[in-house]
Design a protein around this nucleic acid. Structure first.
Length: 431
DNA sequence: AATAAGATGAACAACGTT
DNA sequence: AACGTTGTTCATCTTATT
């Protein structure tokens, strides 16, 4: 039962860090560079997506007499009491690398304009109305919904609200592998032809059980070649639900923590030294580094001397890692994180990467009082970036028990993010 | 006491059909 | 327009094991 150290180290060698890059996802190109920010926003969020339109157009045959190309959207626009946000499809936000569609400008309310810059993150698929509430507390800025499958080998649908510039974004180099085979080359020899996955589903905090692996193996061993239709369907359903990969004949297994570290954009062994449960939890709750870094990349030219960062709900330090990988120096970082395991992970990383800046740890957002903020701001000369994703526990689809919305026990800490951001802006005199 | 393992659906969007 | 189908999801809790 469980996974032996041998399996674990074998799993490390499954990772293809230096695998060459090639196109695997079939992108539809579209050249749109709009100067009309508002028109673009409207197109992006209140109508069908431009890429989707092109996709439709490229289909060989189309029933052109049909008026109902987007029945759902039409229905929504009529019915909804503006409590449902439109998720872009494909979920590429204001643009992703290697895709010509880009939104390069937008208009923000005066009180939303930085500095300080800020970036807020949470899961895209919340209960209805949540993102509208979040948006209403963050200067009515339109969320940017991005799926990390455009940056790495796993899906990760997230919403980001930020006041960052949009022009001249750039990704971390080298671009990470985006297919399963590139990210996990050793799985290819065991991969059945009838498993058509090219990318993984979202990395969660829990993994599939060994019993499930056994059940799937038993089901497959009855067959010599291709299994029956219903067995195939059962297996595909389970491997997708639990994000399993092929590690042997008729054998599937969950991803190893080391593999997840690389897919999520962290250094290998970023979370090493802690229990598997802690590693899965920390990584499952984390930023996908490349995705966030793409949005933060515009700060590099603005802060060549480095930044003062207020990192809320830091987790395993996704924001810090992203800035570091972008080559943006950190002068002072105030990192707020409840879990002491996560705090130690950040501290370890801070040491290992020889950071010259100063790291200050706070264990609870409620300890971040006006007075503390005032002290830091006086000492540093202000925060340049306030970044963080508040707890998603009560919003996430995987939560069977307490998915009770933004007012839930943990997710309501969002309002502390708002409180702290507001206070920082007031003290810095930008409102 | 810490850790691992296993069991536990529903909400919601996307897509298809009628 | 309406309705059914398919698919995805930063989790929580209890129990067993170390």
């Amino acid at each position: 039962m469980g996974y032996s150290p041998n399996e674990a180290s074998a799993a490390v060698s499954r990772c293809g860090i230096d695998a060459p890059l090639s196109e695997l996802v079939d992108f539809i190109s579209a050249a749109h560079l709009s100067k009309e920010a508002d028109a673009e926003m409207d197109k992006l969020y209140f109508s069908s997506h431009p890429l989707q339109k092109d996709k439709k157009r490229k289909l060989p045959k189309e029933k052109s007499h049909s008026i109902k190309r987007y029945p759902k959207i039409e229905r929504k626009r009529r019915d909804d009491d503006d409590d449902a946000l439109h998720l872009p499809n494909p979920m590429i936000g204001f643009g992703v690398p290697r895709e010509s569609f880009q939104v390069v400008s937008r208009t923000l309310r005066r009180e939303a304009i930085g500095p300080p810059y800020f970036l807020y993150e949470n899961v895209a698929l919340t209960p209805k109305g949540v993102w509208n509430t979040i948006k209403s507390h963050l200067y009515e800025i339109e969320p940017e919904f991005v799926d990390s499958k455009f940056f790495c080998a796993a899906a990760r649908k997230r919403g980001y609200i930020h006041n960052l510039p949009l022009n001249d974004r750039f990704p971390i180099q080298p671009l990470p592998p985006r297919s399963i085979f590139q990210a996990l080359p050793a799985t290819e020899k065991w991969w059945p032809s009838w498993d058509d996955r090219e990318q993984l589903n979202c990395i969660l905090t829990c993994v599939g059980s060994a019993q499930l692996t056994d059940r799937i193996r038993t089901a497959l061993e009855k067959y010599d070649g291709v299994p029956d239709k219903h067995v195939k369907k059962y297996v595909m359903g389970q491997v997708k639900k639990w994000n399993l990969v092929w590690t042997g004949k008729n054998k599937v297994a969950p991803l190893e923590p080391d593999e997840i570290e690389l897919i999520m954009g962290y250094p290998l062994y970023h979370t090493r030294g802690y229990s598997r449960s802690e590693r899965y939890k920390g990584l499952g709750n984390a930023f996908q580094v490349d995705t966030v870094a793409y949005q933060l990349s515009v700060l590099k030219s603005l802060y060549p001397e480095g930044m003062n960062v207020l990192s809320l709900f830091s987790g395993i330090g996704g924001a810090e890692v992203a800035l570091h990988k972008l080559g943006i120096p950190m002068k002072n970082v105030v990192s707020v994180e409840k879990s002491n395991v996560c705090r130690r992970i950040i501290e370890g990383w801070w040491e290992q990467t020889n950071q010259e800046g100063k790291l200050i740890h706070v264990s609870d957002v409620r300890e971040v009082t006006d007075g503390k903020l005032e002290g830091w701001i006086r000492s540093f000369g202000g925060f340049d970036l306030v970044i963080g994703g508040s707890p998603c526990n009560n919003l996430a689809g995987g939560n069977r028990r307490t998915r009770d919305g933004l007012e839930g026990e943990h997710s309501s800490l969002f309002f502390d993010y708002v409180r702290i951001l507001d206070t920082v802006k007031i003290i810095m005199g930008t409102t």
